[in-house]
Design a protein around this nucleic acid. Structure first.
Length: 457
RNA sequence: UCCUCAGUAGCUCAAUGGUAGAGCAUUCGGCUGUUAACCGAAGGGUUGUAGGUUCGAAUCCUACCUGAGGAGCCA
């Protein structure tokens, strides 16, 4: 007997007597293996239907999986057989029958039908738009609310769930406290990227956050080790397979941490998450046809190199990059192609990083920042580093970047009242999930993607 | 913002200046083990929009609209 807390329906208990009508237990398809030989009820939607005269094979989808049902005309009341025979795609219905292992059927189990109830039949003059054949991305995105019922989308969303849960479990079990940062913010966190402006009761302009980092620094001084995890907004007119205007980012921040500690945590987190996805989401990766051998090699230590070294490697591989420039996507792919795991690049030129990066002691033109670049062309999944802890230096950087001093007074306070070296990073969930799933585009890693030219549905 | 490509049936595509077609989906009929089942039939079109060239335009030209891929920027 299962103790799955998800089962809310009344199940036949030990007090059931022979005189009572037997109520079949409602199960989810994902747990079919534990109910072989039992009479059960499945509640779901029609995924596909094949019929051959006096026998029909409806495949029911219940959100947890797919199961083929077998209904034979001669063994059923005519009304029930006709109900199943006339089901249209995505019609909702419940079906009762006995579970049997069947290697020919999708999922490995089959239901021999004894009863069925129609809940709502999809009208044939307005059939379900997503047929079992091919569709284009534009059409599917217009029907995203229905597309999520498809197997591949289902798999991607489940991998995302695993990654999100893994992120929380990792930080929760390593002494971090979740301290949420605001989504409405009064000014730019970094001053570089474009922000979405929001009218705030007419008399004040606020912006949707592009990073929780500045608040994270305050929180780290309060709690030692913190993380924030929520949606982030970038009004950049980026139109590539790696960009969304609304995406999720986890940002840990640690007091008394230097660049090396930031790198250690970033590496440890990535290794943990990859291992967890491989362990718990194999079925989903199979649906996505992900080459799992490409993930199994992701172990510590990751290759580490300085920006200087990275530029030399790129130049030797034919890139036209020059010292001082930022890496393009082609550069990132070149840089990782000889490795079977992510690559860490640190000590970037300060002028291509945000104002708050701590400079290197020996070479002040370098910033103590690190990027983690995923293999297979998935690009930068983590960016972070050590922050400036000295008040005078931070004041100088604000001035150099023409940032409004008064808006940052609270941030400067952190350097006035017990400042310590500290650092952290941000990891983009969608890019990470796209890498795990082997997806071409990050738009399939979030249920309702928001992109340059798409805000619907 | 820039560059490239694409818009034809509900969907995916064909028709390369000369009568707009196929598969899937839908409807009707057939089939007791199908695996995107199959077999037969039917309905379904102002070829993204506006203009132009031509005897004749889905096809050539111009503008616009919509989308995709990429660049820059970033996670």
């Amino acid at each position: 007997m299962s103790s799955d807390p998800n089962i809310v329906s009344a199940a036949p208990g030990p007090s059931e007597t022979a005189g009572l009508k037997r109520q079949p237990r409602v199960i989810r398809i994902s747990e079919a293996d534990r109910h072989v030989g039992e009479l059960v009820e499945v509640q779901g939607w029609l995924y596909n239907l094949r019929k051959s005269g006096k026998i029909v094979f409806p495949i029911i989808r219940d959100g947890s999986g797919l199961m083929q049902c077998v209904a034979v005309k001669n063994n059923l009341p005519e009304e029930i057989f006709d109900t199943l025979k006339n089901l249209t795609q995505e019609s909702s219905f419940t079906v009762t029958g006995t579970i049997r292992a069947e290697s020919r059927a999708i999922g490995g189990f089959e239901l021999d039908v004894t009863d069925a109830k129609l809940v709502q039949r999809v009208a044939e003059d307005q059939p379900y738009p997503i047929t079992p054949k091919d569709h284009g991305v534009d059409f599917l995105m217009d029907h995203r609310h229905l597309w999520l019922r498809s197997r591949r989308q289902h798999a991607a969303v489940r991998v995302r769930h695993e990654v999100v849960k893994g992120i929380r479990d990792y930080f929760d079990s390593h002494g971090f406290t979740l301290v949420d940062t605001p989504i409405f913010t009064p000014a730019a966190c970094e001053g570089t990227t474009t922000l979405f402006e929001v009218d705030y009761f007419g008399d004040e302009k606020v912006y949707l956050t592009q990073s929780g980092q500045l608040y994270n620094e305050a929180n780290a001084m309060a709690f030692g080790k913190v993380y924030c995890f929520g949606p982030t907004f970038r009004a950049e007119k980026s139109k590539t397979r790696r960009h969304l205007t609304e995406f999720w980012m986890v940002e840990p921040e640690m007091a008394y941490a230097d660049l090396e500690e930031v790198k250690r945590v970033a590496e440890d987190l990535v290794v943990y998450l990859v291992g967890r996805v491989l362990e718990n989401r194999q079925e989903e990766l199979k649906v996505l046809e992900r080459d799992m051998s490409k993930l199994e090699t992701v172990r510590a230590p990751f290759p580490r190199m300085s920006y200087d070294e990275a530029v030399k490697i790129l130049q030797s591989k034919g890139s036209e990059i020059e010292w001082g420039g930022d890496f393009g996507n082609a550069d990132e792919t070149l840089l990782t192609q000889d490795f079977d795991r992510p690559v860490m690049v640190d000590h970037y030129p300060a002028h291509i990083k945000a104002f708050y990066f701590q400079p290197d002691e020996q070479r002040s033109e370098l910033a103590l920042g690190v990027d983690v670049i995923a293999p297979e062309g998935y690009g930068e999944i983590i960016g972070g580093g050590q922050r400036i802890h000295d008040l005078a230096l931070l004041e100088q950087r604000l001035a150099e970047h023409d940032l409004p001093r008064e808006a940052f007074e609270w941030y400067l306070d952190l350097r006035r009242f017990g400042t310590v070296p500290h650092g952290g990073f941000g990891m983009g969930v969608e890019r990470f999930v796209a890498w795990m799933c082997g997806l071409e585009h990050v738009r399939e890693t979030i249920p309702y993607p928001r992109m340059l030219y798409r805000t619907r549905p």
